[in-house]
Design a binder for these strands. Structure first.
Lengths: 159, 159
DNA sequence: ATGTAATGTTGTCATTGACAACAAAACGCG
DNA sequence: CGCGTTTTGTTGTCAATGACAACATTACAT
């Protein structure tokens, strides 16, 4: 009678999201998890997590920066960044030199190995970006990038 | 000469993101963190985390569902969902009845208190949505929602 | 009937975010 | 100059989360 088994099976397959469908944060979260899982899988050979990779990129783009500056730019808390840098310094991919102008802060630089490790990591990250871009489509990815950046500035101020 | 102090101060204020600017995942992550921080702050009076709230919404929309079905729909792992539901059952906002058709699975329902708690939580969540919508602008938020949903289906399949 | 798969539970570990306390150094202001 | 305040980096601790393994119970396939 009206194929009840099939109907029930389908109902169990795909649940209704209910009011969750109206929450922007839910979809942002799901997309972030999906993207990060692929990134983490791709960067696994370097044993590099997303936060570590972002710190390396910021040191590369701003050599000599202090931990406070890096942390502010990336939204990483002081305590967490200190431990994260301790790990990167032991590899050793990052050098912490005491800043000449400020005795408290450390000037951060990439070491020789750090530069090479970052170059290899960038290749893996490019594979990740190519994969997600292939799935999303270039125009969808571009529109998303544009919207996310404007959204970020509206919510957090200029980056 | 050329106001070097001002230039240096500005350089320290706003670091260059470098290659990070090309990574979609970075902007998705930052937006997700910002949105969730506001959501968590708004829902704090209910002592309800985003994952708990999403589970309540799914049980409301799909009463009698099994834990496996809820977990699959939300991307929450079995073990984590079991502990999460144990907490919601103790409040007590959720009831776990043994399913008649399957002796292994539990049929999930909202309790009376759960319905009331969810109603109050929805009001707080609406305040959160109103706040972010005000900052983003309705058209920006709508475009984001549209893009995120298509991106989710392209990366994870139909939801 | 028996091996296989699914469901829920518990245990354990790693990562992350958050907060407090602390020492050293810089800064502001009288 | 001196002194209280702020900044910077470090360590400790806790909660939330994701992941994985092991296990008992039940359903399923053949």
């Amino acid at each position: 009678m009206y194929e009840p088994a099939t109907t029930e099976a389908f109902a169990e397959e795909r649940l209704d999201l209910g009011h969750l469908k109206q929450h922007l944060g839910y979809f942002v979260r799901r997309l972030q998890i999906t993207i990060f899982k692929d990134f983490i899988r791709e960067l696994a050979p370097m044993r590099l997590r997303p936060a570590q990779y972002s710190v390396l990129l910021l040191i590369e783009a701003n050599p000599g920066s202090s931990q406070a500056a890096i942390g502010r730019a990336l939204g990483i808390e002081r305590a967490r960044l200190a431990r994260l840098l301790h790990d990167l310094e032991e590899r050793p991919w990052v050098e912490r030199r005491s800043a000449s102008s400020d005795g408290r802060s450390h000037a951060l630089f990439l070491s020789r190995e750090g530069v090479k490790a970052l170059a290899r990591s960038k290749k893996l990250a490019a594979r990740h970006e190519a994969y997600t871009t292939q799935l999303l489509g270039a125009e969808c990815r571009g529109a998303l990038m544009q919207l996310l950046r404007t959204a970020g500035t509206r919510l957090n101020g200029p980056t």
